[in-house]
Amino acid sequence: MKKIVALVLGVGFLFAMDPQTASKEELAAIKGVGEKKAEAIVKFRETHPIQGEKDLMMIEGIDLQTAQNIYDDVKEPQKEEKKEEKKEETPR
């Protein structure tokens, strides 16, 4: 059972996280965010769509570096997945 849970959690990291739909816990796990900023993001997106770093910077306590960290964490899993696909396609 532990292996199944670990597998499911591991697979979850392969997919990009969207700050517009991510849970408070997912957001809080990002470097520089934490629980209070994650809560502020969740509250902010109830009335404002988050479409980029500029939208995140409208939230009190989120500066350019934090906004970039959020989007880096969102984009990195996709980059890693593409690298893996290229490795599989490359004949040896």
Score class of each variant (00 low, 15 high):
M1W: 14
M1Q: 14
M1I: 11
K2M: 15
K3Y: 15
K3P: 10
I4T: 10
I4R: 08
I4Q: 10
V8Q: 10
L9F: 10
L9C: 06
G10H: 00
G10R: 03
G10Y: 04
G10F: 02
G12D: 08
G12N: 09
F13D: 12
L14T: 05
F15P: 02
A16L: 00
A16R: 06
M17I: 11
M17S: 12
D18W: 07
P19W: 12
P19K: 07
P19S: 09
Q20S: 02
Q20N: 03
T21D: 00
T21Y: 01
A22T: 05
A22R: 00
S23D: 07
K24S: 01
E26F: 00
L27F: 06
A28F: 12
A29Q: 03
A29P: 00
I30W: 04
I30Q: 02
K31F: 02
K31A: 03
G32H: 11
G32K: 10
V33G: 06
V33Q: 01
G34Q: 12
K36W: 13
K36Q: 13
A38L: 01
A38M: 05
E39L: 10
A40H: 14
A40P: 10
K43I: 08
K43R: 09
R45M: 05
R45E: 07
R45N: 02
E46M: 07
E46I: 00
T47R: 08
T47C: 04
T47K: 04
T47E: 10
T47Q: 07
P49G: 04
P49R: 08
I50V: 06
G52T: 06
E53R: 12
K54C: 03
D55W: 01
D55N: 03
D55Q: 00
L56K: 05
M57N: 07
M57L: 06
M57W: 07
M57A: 05
M57E: 12
M58W: 05
M58F: 04
I59R: 02
E60R: 06
G61K: 14
G61H: 14
I62E: 11
D63H: 06
L64F: 08
T66H: 01
A67M: 14
A67Q: 15
A67C: 14
Q68K: 09
N69M: 06
Y71R: 04
Y71L: 06
D72S: 10
D72A: 09
D72H: 13
D72W: 09
D73H: 08
V74W: 13
K75A: 08
K75G: 08
K75Q: 12
E76W: 08
E76F: 02
E76P: 03
P77Q: 03
P77I: 04
P77V: 05
Q78N: 14
E80Y: 13
E80T: 11
K82C: 10
K83A: 12
K83F: 12
E85I: 09
E85C: 03
K86M: 11
K86I: 12
K87L: 08
E89A: 11
E89Q: 14
E89D: 13
T90K: 10
T90Y: 09
T90A: 09
R92H: 15
